[in-house]
Design a binder for these strands. Structure first.
Lengths: 232, 232
DNA sequence: AGCTATATTTCACACACAATTAACTATTTG
DNA sequence: CAAATAGTTAATTGTGTGTGAAATATAGCT
């Protein structure tokens, strides 16, 4: 299976064998994996790693999976992440509590890698479908129709196809019209948190977009950043 | 309203080269940096400096990073600070101990400045999109709409985009209408506590704002300062 | 694999304009 | 009518941004 963006998975379990098994299989499937051996570490890592999926053992020393889950869910940046519990067949006690604190699914050990992988892959496939045929992928503003499904842009009757970054930039700016974003903001939303690119790169992309859609739509606010606005 | 304050970083490492590299890059990014070459000195500095972030080498003479971290964490004033460990790739021994004593993250040397900076910036960044539908950034007073998200000002039907300092000045004054602020107050709030600028500078900015919004809104109180008020 | 085209990032320089200072004038106040 | 404070305009400094071009990376194709 091929993954367009590299999804991030955080594996939390106190048994090194399990961690290793999961890590190996996930990386083979093309996921980016981080591991933690207890809840505290998981929370710490999640501060900078921001996983799309957390595999969480329920039984752990210090802070158990349920509590960890609760605290993870309090982070707004994890609102759209999946959390799957791992549980030994015996420990059924927690099933209900697990869903109460915001788990999306749970799996019983022993883990069968094949099954797990296909389940995880399915998770993200569904995720993709959910967001793709959505109405929200088209932004209409002024005489523009900005269509995320085709990466094209209609300015009146004229169709313009933009390359990825340029399109993302325009799309993001136009989805928050009149709001000023700093270059760092734009880098984080479009390039991603863990990509190390110079802020000046944004300038160049802004220029290219301006060349293609016209000079009057993206405004510079000196010392602050850029905003999209319709001219009067 | 709060202006981005200067975050403080304490760099602790016994290798001068590393310290210098980090210090240089952090200061270039606008952080206030103090350095220490071992754990004891770090603890001493932290008494008066109170860093928002500590970059802590694990392997150090006298007192190692783990122990230093533990003692730092006992200080209540550092409860909300970040602590990031620096570790050579080989010294994996300490990963677990590190999180146990309250580290937030760890990085392996060799250090890639750009990646590190981006990661640190991310730590202090508040999520952007979250704040977008918020109305709190808009001040409505009389026939003015002063919008911090777009750095624009509507006076009736007329839109005016102000440059950064001018906008901040107007925004600050108008968020406390009828209250008089001395030039020092304004410098302190808008320019920041540790910036040395002549108080006369405020006059000039006031002049510019008056030119753009009209002469009747910012009133001078001689011997005291300025205030924003709607004319009768 | 290699080649080509295109996208993306970096770099360097010039320029515009914001920010600050300076110099001078006007006004208030005791 | 001094002395102090603020207004005004101009000159200077400084920073941020625009721009073209070069360097890398990526994708598509034979």
């Amino acid at each position: 299976m091929t993954i367009q963006r590299k999804y991030k998975v955080l594996v939390v379990d106190d048994e090194p064998d399990i961690v290793e098994l999961l890590e190996y299989n996930l990386e083979k499937e093309g996921y980016e994996v981080q591991t933690a051996s207890n809840g505290k570490k998981a929370l710490a890592i999640a501060k900078t790693f921001v996983p799309d999926l957390v595999l969480l053992d329920i039984m752990m020393p210090e802070m158990d999976g349920v509590e960890t889950c609760r605290q993870l869910r309090q982070r707004t940046e994890l609102a759209n992440s999946f959390i799957i519990f791992l549980t030994a067949r015996s420990e059924e006690y927690s099933e209900i509590a697990a869903f109460d604190v915001g788990a999306d699914d749970y799996l019983t050990k022993p883990i069968r890698p094949r099954a797990l992988m296909s389940r995880i892959n399915a998770l993200f496939r569904r995720d993709v479908q959910k967001t793709s045929p959505d109405e929200h992928d088209v932004i209409r503003i002024g005489d523009f129709v900005i269509d995320r499904t085709s990466y094209t842009l209609m300015k009146g009757e004229v169709q313009i196809t933009l390359p990825k970054k340029e399109f993302e930039l325009l799309y993001f700016l136009s989805s928050n019209p009149n709001k000023v974003f700093s270059r760092d903001d734009l880098l984080h939303h479009i390039w991603g948190a863990d990509v190390y690119v110079l802020a000046r790169t944004v300038d160049v992309h802004i220029r290219r977009v301006r060349e293609k859609i016209g000079e009057d739509y993206i405004t510079t606010v000196k010392g602050v950043g850029y905003k999209f606005e319709m001219p009067k």
